[in-house]
Nucleic acid binder design. Sequence first.
DNA 1: AAGGATGCCAACCGCTGCGGG
DNA 2: GCCCGCAGCGGTTGGCATCCT
Length: 194
Amino acid sequence: MDKRISSSEEAEVRKGPWTMEEDLILVNYISNHGEGVWNNIARSAGLKRTGKSCRLRWLNYLRPDVRRGNITQEEQQLIMELHERWGNRWSKIARQLPGRTDNEIKNFWRTRVQKKLKHGECLMMNNLMLMDDEASTSALQVNAAGDVNGGGQPVCNGDMVGGDLQHGDGMTSDDFSTESNDNFWSVEDFWLLN
DNA sequence: AAGGATGCCAACCGCTGCGGG
DNA sequence: GCCCGCAGCGGTTGGCATCCT
């Protein structure tokens, strides 16, 4: 390896949260030149980011068709079904949900669904342990392996409807605006700016 | 009101597959 | 057939926000 090059390049590469300026540069560049080889985009646009990082930022945040905000009940249902069918194929699942990114779905699954499932599993385990020690372990294995199958899904769905969805339903448009607040800015602003 | 715990999300990292030279 | 570079994917982490005690 050429240490000279790698060290100087490393010093150039920026990491961490994207600034508004960087976002603007990337959006402008892509709207002018279109998508292409990401490493070239990063270089040509004058961004001190890796192509990988640019791609991720574009796909997950800056794309004009990206939908942000709460996952709707229909989407949750669909995610459940697709996950049951395909497992952790997030990109595949995301393609069935227009405007949603694999990252978003993955995060959604990990933070909410999985925890609900875990909770459901705990409740289930408690019940089973009351019934029979041996049976509880085997039942748990089946549940864990089958993910949202069987016992998982009802618990999850019911819980979600009671918990997250009362958020989601009541907040849809409102939440969209607050979602992109703080140090982040609405993507629509970008496209308006452009 | 303050501090700690928890949840959520953006971004990074490492691996894999694919296409071109 | 092999090597290299790139894109895409899934897992993981860090930091901020919110909630709870």
